[in-house]
């Protein structure tokens, strides 16, 4: 097994006194993988992603990024796409590109411009004039144009049209790099399944199943989508 990009050790998080959203969760993700973090609503996928991204603080447990405990310097290794628009709407697309270039040494501006051109997004457009789906595409372009070690994509295709989904998935696969890993959370398992190398099902604040997608499909004779429906049947 290659060096882990991410290690979560007995990670616990609760927002209020009561049932924790994450309950002593353990998870290890090796480098060079596209990893699907899957689970029903409210199972803690976004909370886990936010903890890894550093915008939530765990109640207990530890997170290691590239074998180092998570600190402010880990931000340089992580490229995070939240599930909601998070840029100031008065900025223009090209200003955002300048902003990313200023702060992230690993940002590839040329790649970002190429991706914007492919997605037919005008670089001089102000964010407030763009639709929600287009804003999400801009965010994804910025996040994927970095040469990070760990990409955290929270619902990256939820708000975009099917044609753009294909482009986005191809972009994610195209960015494949043996030293980096991509974690994707989504409900659109059928769309994302072909891109995934590994997956984990989350439930009750823990990882309840984890494995290699091809091996599981071969062993069970079922797609991930079918397996998900079976495990989380209401």
């Amino acid at each position: 097994m290659s060096t882990p990009v991410l290690e979560c050790e007995r990670l616990t998080k609760s927002y209020r006194a009561g049932t924790p959203v994450l309950n002593e969760l353990d998870l290890t993700i090796p480098s060079g993988k596209i990893f699907g973090l899957l689970g029903p609503n409210g199972c803690g996928k976004s909370t886990l992603i936010k903890l890894i991204a550093g915008i939530l603080m765990p109640n207990s447990g530890g997170i290691k990024i590239c074998s180092e405990y998570r600190s402010e310097s880990s931000n340089a290794l992580i490229s995070y796409l939240p599930e909601r628009p998070y840029f100031s709407s008065r900025m223009k697309v090209n200003e955002l590109l300048d902003y990313f270039e200023d702060f992230y040494e690993d940002f590839d501006k040329l790649l970002a411009y190429n991706m914007l051109r492919d997605l037919k997004i005008e670089p001089l457009a102000q964010l407030k004039t763009l639709s929600k789906g287009t804003k999400e595409k801009v965010q994804l372009v910025l996040v994927m144009a970095r040469r990070a070690k760990l990409y955290l994509l929270d619902e990256p295709i939820g708000g975009v049209d099917p044609a753009a989904r294909e482009y986005i998935l191809n972009t994610i696969i195209g960015n494949y790099n043996p030293e980096a890993s991509v974690i994707i959370t989504t409900h659109l398992i059928t769309d994302i399944e072909p891109a995934l190398d590994e997956f984990a099902f989350m439930g009750g604040g823990k990882i309840i199943m984890q494995g290699n997608c091809d091996e599981v499909r071969e062993r069970t004779g079922k797609s991930l989508d079918m397996l998900f429906k079976e495990v989380f049947r209401c």
């Binding site: 915008i55 628009p85 998070y86 702060f103």
Partner: peptide, 19 residues
């Protein structure tokens, strides 16, 4: 407030800059 505690905080606190 907006840079730190609204949705923009998602960008602010994921920058490779010390808080």
């Amino acid at each position: 407030y907006k840079h730190f505690f609204s949705d923009e905080g998602y960008l602010t606190f994921t920058l490779p800059v010390k808080r």
